[in-house]
Amino acid sequence: MFRSRRAPRIAAALASATLLFATAACGGDDDSGSDSAATGTEGSSSGAFPVTLDHKYGSTTIESEPQRIVTVGLTDQDSVLALGEVPVGTTEWLGGYDGAVGPWAADKLAGAETPTVLTDTGTGPQVEKIAALDPDLILAVYGGLTEEQYESLSKFAPVVAQPKQYNDYGVSWQEQTEIIGKALGKEDEAAAAVKATEDAISSAAAENPAFKGASAVVATPYEGMFVFGSQDPRSHLLGDLGFSLPADLDELIGDQFGANISKERTDLLDQDAVVWQVTDVAKDPGTLHEDASYKDLNVVKQGREVFVSESSDYGNALSMGTVLSLPYVVERLVPQLAAAVDGDVDTKVVPVGV
């Protein structure tokens, strides 16, 4: 999340984790909280309605098959598209893509009208613009809605907010897809989509046994050094590929998706591999290597850094971390990680995504 574009992205998500989306959230109908993430109590894989979904602010009942879906969650559009539906409205987070649909998902539009894009400014969902789209379902699964925002949006349509048991923006892509599958009455399709992507990741892991048990972390040079926690989709992917995360990562980050670390804790980056999302793959590595607290770490001296341009399609797909973007990422990230952990200090890890 950034611009160059880094600042807006991380700042927006940070605001979201604390305040983001601070103007409009809505959804469910009932304030009876639940300890389980959105789970269908009726309907389920048969696609029957009504279906009730639990979330951070209670539960929401969807009475019939949605026809006009608006995605407020920053990556929810990919799950909707993977299930054969096209939202009427999406929320732009990064990339500036038509309809907020990245190239890894564009074929899923299949000639349908491009969704109206709502801009995430870090101040909350655009309630009036959402209402004008006449939605019959608002999805905010990968999001950080406040209760006030949830209630505001609920005046217009049923809202499915983020699951209660995760940090804001902490739901895994698997559960995100499954929750949205329940909301759309497409549980079987959601399970199949999740399996296809899991199979692609599992195959890559099996082909690279050196990943198993190796340690890795994802970071970005935002206002110093910003490290992503275990519930961020980038970290999820490393775990799915077989890597382990630093043991005290979440202890340092707390209940956020990521946080800046002090100069005294750059040791957190000294892993078997560190994946850097940077603004400029030509210049940013050199700047990082000028930092006295970082340049002498083994991960630097032994050439185990992976650099990804965060403003490229590849970098955007990595940030999204969805059922549709991850196969696109795996094709590009796995060769970089393999070069980083091959044990040969002379192997160059080629930056990707210019």
Rank of each mutant, 00 (worst) to 15 (best):
S312W: 03
D248N: 14
A112C: 11
T23W: 10
D255F: 02
R9C: 05
L133W: 04
W104L: 01
L94M: 13
V72H: 05
L137N: 02
D270G: 07
L245I: 01
G321P: 02
L288M: 13
T75H: 10
R265V: 11
A273I: 05
S44W: 01
R68P: 04
D120M: 12
F156H: 15
T266F: 06
G321M: 05
W173K: 04
T71I: 07
L249N: 10
F307V: 05
A7K: 15
L324E: 11
G239E: 15
P50K: 02
E151D: 12
A13H: 07
W93G: 00
N167A: 09
D240G: 05
G315Q: 07
D76N: 04
Q149G: 15
N167H: 09
D255P: 05
V160A: 05
P335E: 14
V275T: 09
A259Y: 04
R68E: 11
Q256M: 10
A340M: 12
Y166R: 13
D78P: 01
A7Q: 14
D35A: 10
D78F: 00
L297A: 07
H236L: 10
A206F: 10
T75R: 09
V194I: 13
T266Q: 06
A282I: 06
V278R: 00
L326G: 00
K182W: 06
V217E: 01
F226E: 01
F257G: 02
D136C: 08
I253Y: 00
A157F: 04
S79E: 06
G89L: 03
F243A: 02
Q336P: 05
G353P: 03
L241V: 09
G143F: 03
I253E: 03
A192Y: 09
T279G: 11
V329C: 03
G170A: 10
N167I: 10
V117C: 12
I180W: 01
E175H: 12
L81H: 06
D344Y: 08
G40P: 10
E151T: 12
D134A: 15
A140G: 13
D240F: 07
D240N: 15
P221C: 08
T287H: 08
S319H: 01
A210C: 09
V51F: 00
D284P: 05
A100H: 06
D284A: 10
R5E: 12
L137D: 02
G89P: 07
T39I: 12
G40I: 01
D255L: 06
A183N: 03
A37K: 04
K129R: 15
N316T: 12
L238W: 04
L245D: 02
L53V: 06
L241W: 05
Y97T: 00
S202D: 15
A25P: 12
D270C: 10
R304L: 08
Y57E: 07
P50Y: 03
Q162N: 13
Q162D: 08
D267T: 15
G286S: 14
